[in-house]
Design a binder for these strands. Sequence first.
RNA 1: GGCGACGUGGCGGAGUGGCUACGCAGCGGCCUGCAAAGCCGUCUACACCGGUUCGAUUCCGGUCGUCGCCUCCA
Length: 456
Amino acid sequence: MRTISLHDTLTGEVRVLEPREPGKAGIYACGPTVYGRIHVGNARPFVIFSLLKRFLVHEGYIVTFVANVTDVNDKIYDKARGEGVLSAELASEMTAAYMADTEALELGRPDHEPLATETMGEIVSLIESLVESGHAYESGGDVYFSVRGYPEYGELSHRNVDAMDQGEGVEGAELKRDPLDFALWKAHKPTEDTAWDSPWGAGRPGWHIECSAMAESLLGVDFEIHGGGSDLIFPHHENEAAQTRAARGAPLARLWVHNGMVRVPAAGAAAEEKMAKSVGNVFLLHEALSAFGRDALIMFFVQGHYRQPVVFSEERLAEAAAAVRRVREAGRSLVPGPSPAEYGSLRDAFLEALARDFNTPRALEAVFEWVRRANRADGPVGDADLREMLGVLGLENLLEADAAEIPAPALELRDARERARAARDWPEADRLRDELRATGWEVRDGPDGPELLPAR
RNA sequence: GGCGACGUGGCGGAGUGGCUACGCAGCGGCCUGCAAAGCCGUCUACACCGGUUCGAUUCCGGUCGUCGCCUCCA
C-alpha cells in the first residue's frame, strides 16, 4: 500500500489520501440526471472513478464506490411532459439505459447506485436538521438554505459571496430571503406529476440536497473522496459541502476530486467547446461504443490526465485504437506466468505514477516501455506484470486471445496461397492475400508459417 | 467583470531548474518473395516579452490566445 495523493479542489493542492480508517476509502461520484441517454462527457467520471477504485483496491484498500442517479429534476419533468409520458416512467427507462450504457464499458458496477427517489427519508431528515439549526427556512412550501448564514460558503469553488451574481429573474426568487439562497425542498407544482410528503407539505427535493443525503447514508460524513465533473464545483458541490457541514458540523468529504471536461471541435472554429446537451454537440456513449469499441474509448480516456480537458474526435479515437492495437499485438507473443524481474521497475513506475494524482498518461509510459522490451526480447516473456498494469486501467482484456473461429473458406484461401508461394507464384499468392483481406482476414507470414488474424 | 485552469516537437500528451517521456503519423534501415507485425535510427519542442539564476520549457511578473464555472450541466 503506497502513499496516494490526489488533487483537492478545496485546497487547490495535491494532497495525501488520509482515510478515516486505515485501509478503507469511500468514493462518491455524482452521476447523471436521467432524462436522456448519457454522452461521452457523462462517461468520463464514471470511467475515472471506476479506475481510481481499481487502483485503490490494487493497493490494498477496501473501497466503497457510490455513484448516484438523479431521477427527480426539472429536466425530467419537462422532457416527460413534452413526450406525454409520466416523469417516473421516463426516469426509470433512462436509468435502465444508463445502466446498460455504462455496463458496456465493462468496468464493473459501483458498489451502490442510489436513486434520489429512494432516499427521500434521509433527504427530508437532513433538511429538518438544517431548519432546526437555523441554516434553512421554510417559505411558501419551499425550503431554502441560507447562504449568508454559513460563513464558509464559497470555500470550495473559491468564490466570494459578495462578488457573485445575484441570480435575478430566477424562478421562486420572491420566496427567498436572499437571492443567493438555494432550494432544499420545492413545493409541489401542478405541472409536476410526482410529489413526496414532508413537514413542509408535498414537494420534492432540490438538486443538491439529494447528494448530501445519499452520500452520508452510504458513506457517512467526512468520507475520503468526492468526485465529479469540474462543472459541478459550483454550485452543486459548493452547496453539498455547505449543507452537510452546516447540518452535521463535519465536512462532507476529505478530498474533492474533479475531472476536466470532454470537448468537441466547434463547428468552423479552431477552438473546442464543452460537450453538453445544451450546446447540442453530444456524442452519445452507446454510439461511441459501437463506433470505436470500448477498448479504444477506455484508452482514449487514460491517455489524458483526468484533470485536463480532452477533445473527443474521430482522429483521437483512431489514435487510441492504434495504441490499443500495439498493446494487443505485444500480448500475442507473451506467455502466462511471472514477468522478468528486471521489468519490475516499470511496474513500480506505473504504480507510482498513479499514486501521484492518478497520472494515467505517465503510467501508460511504463506500459509502452514494458511492451517495447517484451517485443525486443528473444525468448518468451511472462505476462504477469503487463496483465496487472492493464487490469488497473480496465484494459486487461487486451491480453485475451482473439477467440474468433476461422471459417473454412478462409483456411482454404490460406492453404491455396501457401501452395502458390511454394510454387513461387507471387502474383497469385498476393491475389489470394487480397482475397483473404476482403473476407476479413489478414495473413501474416511468420517463422512458423502463415497466421490468420481478423483484419483491422 | 469575478474565480479556476491551460498554451510543449506534424498531431495528441506527460514531465523536469541543467540529462531520451510516451503514443500516433512521416522518413531511413533491419527482417520479409513482397507485405504485415516487430526491432533500430531519425525528424534540432517547450506562445511572446522581461526578471531571478552559473543555467529556465520548468520559478516570478507582464502581454497575447484558449477553455471551464459564475444559470441546468459529468
